[in-house]
Simulated scan of single mutants.
Amino acid sequence: MNRLHAYRDAGRPLAAPAEDVSTLLAAALQPGAQLSRVTSALEAILALTERGLAGDAPAYAQYQSLLLTLHLPGEARTEATRRWMASQVYSVEDRFAPALPDYSPVSVALFRERVDAEIAARSRVRHPMSLHLFEGTPPREDVRFFLQHHWIRSYNFYSLLAELAFRFEAIEDASVFYRNLYGEAGAEDPSRSHPALLSHLMTYFDIPLRIDFAGLHPLEKAYLNNRIRCVRHPDVAWGLALLYAVESVSCVNHRRIYELLQRMDVPAGPSEFHRLHGTQDEIDTEEMWALIARFAPDESFQRQFMQSLARHFAINHAYFDMLWQQMPGQSSRQA
C-alpha cells in the first residue's frame, strides 16, 4: 500500500494515460489479482477523478464510467475489492464537495421546513421537459424516450433501500427500509414486485429491459453513481437525504406520469406501477422523516444532510437538462 499512501501524501495525481486506466482496472478485477495491480488501478482512477472534478470533461466522463463499473454487480470474488475501490473514489469526491457557507442548525421542526422548501425549490415541475411531457401533447417517441430513462433510474430502487438499511445498527431504524422493501418486493406476491410491474410498461412501449450501462451518457452515470455512493456513505445523513428527496416527490411525479399514460390510452396493466405509486409513497415518506427526526438534532447531521441534497440536485439538474436536449422531438422543436 506504500504507493497509495505516497499518492495521498503528495496531494497530487500520479498521472496515467486515460486510455490505460480501463485496462488497469480490468486487470485489478481479475479474481486473485495481486495487491500491486489493485493499487496501480486505484491510483490511476483517483488521479482521473481529481482531474474530472477539477473541470476536465473527458476525465470526468471516464471516472464516472469506471465508478459505475465498480458499482454494478460483477464477479462475486471481487465484490470486496470493488466496494473498497469505490469507497476511495468517494473520499476524493468528498474533498471536492461544495461547502455550505454560514449554515446554522435549527430545531427539528424548522429543519423539515428547510428541507421541504429546498426540495420544492429544486423540483423538476417547471423544467421544460416536464412541461412538455405533462402539460403539453408529447409525441409517443418522446414519451418512450422518457420512460426508457425512467426505467434506468427506477428498476433497482429496492437495492438502494437495502444498502441504506445496512448503515443502521438498530433494527428499529433499519426496519423503516425493510418495510419499504417488503412492498417493493410485491409483499406476498413476487409477480406484483415493483420492478415486475414497471417492466410491463417497458414491454408495452417496446423498451429493452436489459440496460446498456456502458453506452449511457456520463451525466446519467453520474446520477446513478451518486445514488449508490450516498446510500453506502458511512454517515447516514447522505443516504437519508437522497432517499427522502426521491420519496417525498414520488407520489406527485408518478401521478403525473400515470395521468400522461391515461391521456395516451395506455391499458391498466402497463399503467399499474404508476397508478400504485401515485398513492402509496406518502406513507414511506412519513416513516422516513420520523427516522430522520431522531438524528436531526445533531448539527453535523443537518449539515451533511443539506450537503447531500445540494449534490443530488446539482447532478439531477444537469442530468435532466441533458435528457431534454437528447429527447427525439427536440430537433423539430428547435427548427
Rank of each mutant, 00 (worst) to 15 (best):
M1G: 07
N2G: 05
L4G: 00
Y7P: 02
R12N: 07
L14V: 15
A15T: 13
A16C: 12
A18K: 07
S22G: 12
L25A: 11
Q30W: 13
P31H: 06
P31F: 01
Q34S: 07
L35C: 03
T49W: 14
A54I: 03
G55K: 04
P58T: 02
P58K: 01
Y63F: 00
Y63N: 00
S65D: 09
L66Y: 01
L66G: 07
A76R: 14
R77Y: 01
E79G: 10
W84L: 15
S87E: 09
Y90I: 00
V92R: 15
V92M: 10
E93Y: 03
E93W: 07
A97S: 06
L100Y: 05
V115I: 12
D116I: 01
I119G: 14
A121L: 07
R126V: 11
L131V: 15
F134N: 05
E135W: 10
T137C: 00
P139F: 01
R144A: 10
Q148L: 13
Q148D: 13
R153K: 12
S154A: 09
Y158K: 13
Y158F: 15
A162Q: 14
R167W: 04
R167H: 05
V176W: 04
A185N: 10
D189Q: 15
R192L: 15
S193D: 05
S199C: 03
D206K: 11
D212N: 09
A214G: 04
P218C: 03
E220A: 14
Y223P: 02
N225M: 01
N226I: 08
I228Y: 10
I228C: 03
R229N: 01
V231C: 14
H233M: 07
H233F: 06
A237I: 06
E247A: 07
S248N: 12
N253P: 00
R256C: 03
Y258D: 10
V266F: 03
P267N: 05
G269Y: 04
H274Q: 11
H274A: 02
D281T: 09
I283K: 06
D284Y: 07
T285Y: 07
W289M: 06
W289K: 05
A290T: 09
I292L: 02
F295W: 13
D298T: 11
S300A: 15
F301D: 04
Q302P: 08
R303H: 14
M306R: 03
M306G: 06
Q307R: 13
L309S: 14
L309T: 11
R311K: 11
A314C: 15
I315K: 06
I315E: 08
H317N: 11
D321F: 03
M327F: 03
M327C: 13
S331V: 14
